[in-house]
Amino acid sequence: MIVWTLLEWLAWGASGLILAWMVADALRVSHDYDEDVLLSSREGEMIMDEPHDAA
Protein backbone atom coordinates (compact mmCIF):
# COMPACT_ATOMS: atom_id res chain seq x y z
CA MET A 1 0.00 0.00 0.00
CA ILE A 2 2.86 2.35 0.86
CA VAL A 3 4.22 2.03 -2.69
CA TRP A 4 0.90 3.13 -4.15
CA THR A 5 0.59 5.98 -1.67
CA LEU A 6 4.06 7.08 -2.75
CA LEU A 7 3.06 6.79 -6.40
CA GLU A 8 -0.02 8.93 -5.74
CA TRP A 9 2.15 11.66 -4.22
CA LEU A 10 4.66 11.36 -7.04
CA ALA A 11 1.84 11.78 -9.57
CA TRP A 12 0.54 14.88 -7.76
CA GLY A 13 4.07 16.30 -7.59
CA ALA A 14 4.96 15.57 -11.22
CA SER A 15 1.65 17.07 -12.40
CA GLY A 16 2.28 20.21 -10.35
CA LEU A 17 5.79 20.59 -11.76
CA ILE A 18 4.65 20.10 -15.35
CA LEU A 19 1.76 22.55 -15.05
CA ALA A 20 3.96 25.10 -13.26
CA TRP A 21 6.61 24.84 -15.99
CA MET A 22 4.02 25.43 -18.75
CA VAL A 23 2.50 28.43 -16.95
CA ALA A 24 5.96 29.88 -16.27
CA ASP A 25 6.99 29.39 -19.89
CA ALA A 26 3.79 31.00 -21.16
CA LEU A 27 4.33 34.00 -18.87
CA ARG A 28 7.95 34.30 -19.96
CA VAL A 29 7.03 34.19 -23.66
CA SER A 30 4.26 36.75 -23.13
CA HIS A 31 6.77 39.01 -21.37
CA ASP A 32 9.64 38.56 -23.85
CA TYR A 33 7.67 38.88 -27.08
CA ASP A 34 5.51 41.63 -28.39
CA GLU A 35 1.82 40.72 -28.39
CA ASP A 36 1.55 41.67 -32.08
CA VAL A 37 4.20 39.06 -32.91
CA LEU A 38 2.52 36.33 -30.87
CA LEU A 39 -0.79 37.13 -32.59
CA SER A 40 0.70 37.45 -36.08
CA SER A 41 -0.49 34.03 -37.29
CA ARG A 42 -2.80 34.21 -40.30
CA GLU A 43 -5.26 31.50 -41.24
CA GLY A 44 -4.03 29.10 -43.90
CA GLU A 45 -0.66 30.77 -44.48
CA MET A 46 2.16 28.51 -45.64
CA ILE A 47 4.97 28.30 -43.07
CA MET A 48 7.12 25.27 -43.75
CA ASP A 49 9.47 23.72 -41.21
CA GLU A 50 12.20 26.16 -40.25
CA PRO A 51 14.86 26.48 -37.56
CA HIS A 52 13.42 27.42 -34.20
CA ASP A 53 14.80 30.42 -32.39
CA ALA A 54 16.84 29.85 -29.30
CA ALA A 55 14.69 31.92 -26.95
Binding site: V37, L38, S40, S41, E50, D53
Partner: peptide
Protein backbone atom coordinates in the same frame (compact mmCIF):
# COMPACT_ATOMS: atom_id res chain seq x y z
CA UNK B 1 12.09 36.04 -34.72
CA UNK B 2 10.49 38.86 -32.75
CA UNK B 3 10.24 40.87 -35.94
CA UNK B 4 8.86 38.07 -38.14
CA UNK B 5 5.25 36.90 -38.17
CA UNK B 6 4.91 33.47 -36.61
CA UNK B 7 2.35 30.77 -37.32
CA UNK B 8 1.76 27.05 -37.01
CA UNK B 9 4.34 24.93 -38.84
CA UNK B 10 3.57 22.68 -41.78
CA UNK B 11 5.48 19.59 -40.70
Amino acid sequence: TKAQPIGLLRV
